[in-house]
Design a protein around this nucleic acid. Structure first.
Length: 337
DNA sequence: CTAATTTGACCGGA
DNA sequence: TCCGGTCAAATTAG
């Protein structure tokens, strides 16, 4: 069961990546657990683009991350996503990215479970040429909070232990890793917290402190072409209504993301199942930026405008160091400055 | 009871 | 017309 729970973190990671993508240019490998929130935040906030691969098992070299090659999945992004079309512009404007989630054999039937957000299934379709049907989910709070995030889950034909999860739009609700706290919905939020008991340990336990990281960064494979000039603004909330308020725990809230993420490694579950990997390509049409405020991102942007090239060396050095010594205490952010 | 899921209908783009 | 995506009524779960 813990294994499933691990996967639940997937979305968080995705969101992180999403944030990174908005913000930076970095290819980052996270081996083993890591969690100096400040540290990570610091590092991450200095890049313009990111591909993140997580491997809770330990240092990256323990096992070549299988899904690492999913990075070239630029093809994942459909062409129509960036077309400047007309009618369904809205949807097309939504950011979209993919995760690959591998589930253990025991959990095979259940599929990749929660990812920190609460989803509601609204459809299932048999897809032409696909062995398994595709499931459609939307954020539970679509109505109450106008959160239009959706995801599609499809089991891979080749490897049934792999689930292809395509996310669309970012969560505008505050019900992700950090449950919402809107007065109005206090009650509901509580309910969620109870259901997603994975939140509890996050705060009550101290494994946050036990965050050790293997990090390695490199800059190759960065497709600046895709990054384009565009800067997609904040949370691509529901484009339906003109309300573009920003999620309190937006995608760039690294502390939350990593806070939750750290818990991922808490599970003593079978190590061989403790693998998780995520890859994402960006696909932001230029249209995206037009109608949002850039408040949340501003900070980040300004933080990394200059970072595209220089900081990498430092990072590389330090992170490689860690790879050699997984127990290297990464609790001190100062080490990087 | 409310909320989530299932499942066929429906819709729009190609 | 086909197909992927969504809607919504019926059903099931909690």
């Amino acid at each position: 069961m813990e294994n499933i729970w691990k996967w639940e973190q997937g979305t968080l990671v995705s969101e992180l990546i999403h944030g990174l993508e908005l913000a930076g240019q970095l290819r980052l490998h996270l081996g083993a657990s890591s969690s100096s929130v400040e540290l990570v935040h610091k590092i991450l906030s200095s890049y313009d683009k990111a591909l993140l691969i997580l491997n809770p098992r330990g240092p990256v070299e323990q096992e070549s991350p299988p899904t690492i090659n999913s990075s070239p999945r630029s093809g994942d992004l459909r062409e129509d996503d960036r077309d400047t079309g007309n009618v369904s512009k809205k949807r097309k404007m939504m950011p979209r990215w993919r995760d690959h989630v591998r589930v253990s054999s025991e959990n095979l039937l259940e599929g990749p479970h929660d990812d920190g957000h609460s989803w509601r299934k609204y459809g299932q379709k048999d897809i032409l040429g696909a062995k398994y049907p595709r499931s459609y989910y939307r954020c539970t709070y679509r109505n109450t909070q106008n959160c239009c995030a959706t995801k599609q889950v499809q089991r891979s034909d080749e490897d049934p232990t792999i689930f292809d999860v395509t996310y669309r739009g970012t969560h505008k609700c505050g019900n992700g890793n950090q449950p919402a706290s809107t007065e109005k919905q206090e009650r509901k939020s509580n309910k969620i917290r109870l259901n997603n008991n994975n939140y509890e340990p996050l705060q009550s336990q101290d494994f946050l402190l036990d965050f050790r990281a293997g990090l390695r960064a490199n800059t190759e494979g960065i497709d600046s072409k895709e990054t384009a000039p565009s800067f997609p603004s904040t949370s691509f909330g529901c484009l339906k209504n003109g309300n573009h308020s920003i999620s309190p725990s937006g995608v760039l809230d690294y502390s939350n993301i990593f806070g939750s993420f750290s818990s991922l490694f808490m599970s003593p579950g079978t190590p061989e199942l403790g693998y998780f990997s995520v890859s994402q390509m960006n696909n932001f049409g230029d249209v995206l930026n037009t109608q949002h405020s850039e408040s949340d991102l501003t900070e980040l942007v300004s933080a990394n405008t200059s970072a595209t090239n220089s900081p990498i060396m430092d990072l590389d050095f330090s992170l490689d160091h860690v790879e050699l010594d997984p127990n290297f205490p990464f609790d001190n952010p100062e080490i990087f400055s």
